[in-house]
């Protein structure tokens, strides 16, 4: 038997229609998990049955922030941390749009942390996908708001003295209506979850754990394949686990699943309700 390999460009990947093919290969390093998270996002959008002309992607800055540059839809690569407020303006000015924010942990939770909690509090109808690679990858591996305690980064050479955020807890406490966490290894669950989040009216948040082999992994002796094996061995799927009791460490394991799925009126629902009432 003989097997196809890539001898010509005639082969078409099932996602090629959603990719800006002229920009592939993307900038993400070998073994970087962002590509897989992005792929899950594209599969979810593709199978959503939405009119894709009305789907927009907004990204901030950083490795994951390059996501918007590779999707063949209306897409916006904005400033550092500001993807969510940009997306807010986009959504409010045209409520027919489905707006997906695809960005990283540094972008969404350090420089953009304030915007995240307020968009969640307002229940802005956005889907926010955060690729959490535990550090600032684009700038060479600095400590982030998500870096585990004692982990080594270029700006914490002796180990991180700080405590990281529990992102699903933060999202839940801020008022998000849909909160989930997956790893790139759980890509089927992830894709399904993104699909649900996109369909969901309100502020949806999905954290995706992904390896950063070059900048985080190298300094913490974590090869990408080993990280995925950890995801395989240490993950515990526990739907509707209390967001305050989620684990993300090698000893207690990694809690995955859909933690929050509730219905609340969106910001725009309430804006119409309050501004259009008869006095």
């Amino acid at each position: 038997m003989s097997i196809q390999s890539d001898q010509s460009d005639q082969q078409t990947h099932p996602l090629d229609d959603l990719l800006r093919k002229d920009r592939i290969p993307h900038i993400w390093c070998p073994g970087c998990g962002i590509g897989t998270a992005f792929s899950a996002c594209l599969y979810a959008i593709k199978s959503s049955k939405l009119d894709l002309d009305h789907v927009s992607m907004v990204s901030g800055i950083g490795c994951s922030g390059r996501g918007a540059g590779y999707i063949n839809l209306d897409s916006f690569h904005t400033t550092h941390g500001r993807a969510i407020p940009f997306a807010t303006g986009l959504k409010l000015a045209n409520p027919d749009l489905t707006v997906v924010v695809f960005s990283g942990d540094g972008d969404l939770f350090a420089i953009g942390g304030n915007h995240f909690i307020h968009a969640a509090r307002r229940n802005m109808d956005l889907t926010v996908i955060c690729v959490n690679n535990l550090n600032y990858g684009m700038t060479g591996g600095q400590v982030a708001a998500t870096t585990p305690h004692l982990a080594k980064t270029t700006t914490t050479p002796a180990g991180n003295p700080e405590t990281p955020f529990n992102l699903p807890l933060l999202a839940y406490a801020s008022g998000a209506t849909y909160v989930a966490r997956w790893t790139i290894l759980h890509t089927r669950d992830l894709t399904e979850s993104i699909g649900e989040a996109i369909q969901k009216k309100g502020f949806s948040f999905i954290e995706v754990l992904a390896p950063c082999p070059v900048n985080y992994g190298r300094r913490n002796k974590l090869k990408p394949l080993d990280v995925l094996r950890i995801y395989q061995e240490k993950s515990i799927i526990k739907h509707f686990a209390s967001p305050s009791e989620l684990h993300l460490d090698l000893e207690k394991g990694i809690t995955l699943g859909k933690f929050v799925d509730q219905d609340k009126p969106t910001w725009l629902d309430m804006y119409y309700k309050t501004t259009r009432k008869k006095s």
Binding site: H13, P14, P25, C32, I34, Y43, I184, T187
Partner: peptide, 12 residues
Amino acid sequence: FCEIICPEFAIY
């Protein structure tokens, strides 16, 4: 699974 785990859109 190869298709969806691949970060590079390189296999299906």
